[in-house]
C-alpha cells in the first residue's frame, strides 16, 4: 500500500547538515500493525513525518498505491491527509475550549464517511465524559479522546507518535488494546513509533531504526495481545 524507496532526509542548520534518514526502503501493507522502534535521534519520528506527508523528503519517493506522495503539491497532500490519514499524538493535542464531543467532531467533520461520534465515544469509554472539557479529563481519557478524533473521519492509516509516552502501564495498555481493535475490527493500518520494545510484540512488522537507517526489519506471525505485552 505504502512504498518507501530510497528516502533520505537532510536537515540543514547553518553550515551543519544532519542526515536524519539515509536511503530508507520499506513497504507498509494494508491492514498491517507496524511498530517503528528506536532510541531518541534514530530517525523514527522523521520517517513517520515523511510517510505521513508532514515533512518533505530530500530524495527518494513514497507511493500510496499508485499515488506518488512525494510529488503532490501542498494542497493535494492536505487532501490526501484529509481522506486517508489519522494521527494520535503523545501530547493528545486536544483543543482546550472544545468538549470531548466537539474535539472528536473536529476530526469527523472532514471525513467523507465518518463514524458516528457518540458511537466512537462509547467505544473509547467516554460516553459520560462527552461534554467535559479537556482540563476535566484524566491523561488516559484525553488520549482516548485523541484516539476517537483520529478515528472519527474513518481514515485508512493511523499514525501514532509515542501514543503511550505520557501514560502509566495500565492506561497505556488500554490505549494499545484500542489500537489493536482498530487494526483487527476495522482493518485500519496502524503505524506506531515508540522506544518501548514491549509494544513491538503486538506488531505484524517491526522496523528497528538507528542513526537514520533501518537496522532490522522483523516480520511477526504471532502477535501478542496488548494486555500481554511486556512493559518497561
Amino acid at each position: 500500500m505504502i512504498t518507501v524507496t530510497d528516502v533520505s532526509k537532510v536537515y540543514q542548520s547553518g553550515e551543519v547538515e544532519t542526515h536524519a534518514l539515509k536511503k530508507i526502503n520499506v513497504m507498509i501493507e494494508n491492514g498491517e500493525f507496524i511498530v517503528i522502534l528506536g532510541p531518541s535521534g534514530s530517525g523514527k519520528s522523521t520517517l513517520l513525518n515523511v510517510i505521513s506527508g508532514l515533512d518533505t523528503v530530500t530524495e527518494g519517493t513514497i507511493f500510496f498505491a499508485e499515488t506518488e506522495l512525494t510529488a503532490l503539491s501542498e494542497r493535494e497532500m492536505t487532501k490526501f491527509r484529509r481522506d486517508h490519514l489519522g494521527f494520535i499524538f503523545q501530547q493528545y493535542n486536544l483543543l482546550q475550549n472544545l468538549t470531548a464531543y466537539e474535539n472528536v467532531q473536529i476530526g469527523a467533520d472532514i471525513g467523507q464517511n465518518p463514524f458516528p461520534i457518540d458511537d466512537l465515544l462509547g467505544k473509547v469509554g467516554l460516553t459520560k465524559a462527552r461534554d467535559k472539557y479537556p482540563y476535566q479529563l484524566s491523561g488516559g481519557e484525553q488520549l482516548r479522546v485523541s484516539v476517537a478524533r483520529s478515528l472519527a473521519k474513518n481514515p485508512d492509516i493511523i499514525f501514532c507518535d509515542e501514543p503511550t509516552g505520557s501514560l502509566d502501564e495500565i492506561n497505556s495498555k488500554k490505549v494499545l488494546k484500542l489500537l489493536q481493535e482498530l487494526n483487527t475490527a476495522y482493518e485500519k493500518t496502524i503505524v506506531v513509533i515508540t522506544h518501548n520494545a514491549g509494544i513491538a510484540e503486538m506488531a505484524d512488522k517491526v522496523i528497528k531504526m538507528n542513526s537514520g537507517e533501518i537496522i532490522e526489519l522483523i516480520y511477526q506471525d504471532v502477535k501478542k495481545d496488548a494486555q500481554d505485552i511486556s512493559w518497561g
Binding site: K79, R81, R82, F87, N93, L95, I110, R149
Partner: peptide, 13 residues
C-alpha cells in the same frame, strides 16, 4: 499548535 493540528488533520489552508 491548534493551527498545526488542524493542518495535520487535513483542514485546508
Amino acid at each position: 499548535y491548534a493551527i498545526s493540528l488542524l493542518k495535520v488533520l487535513g483542514y485546508s489552508r
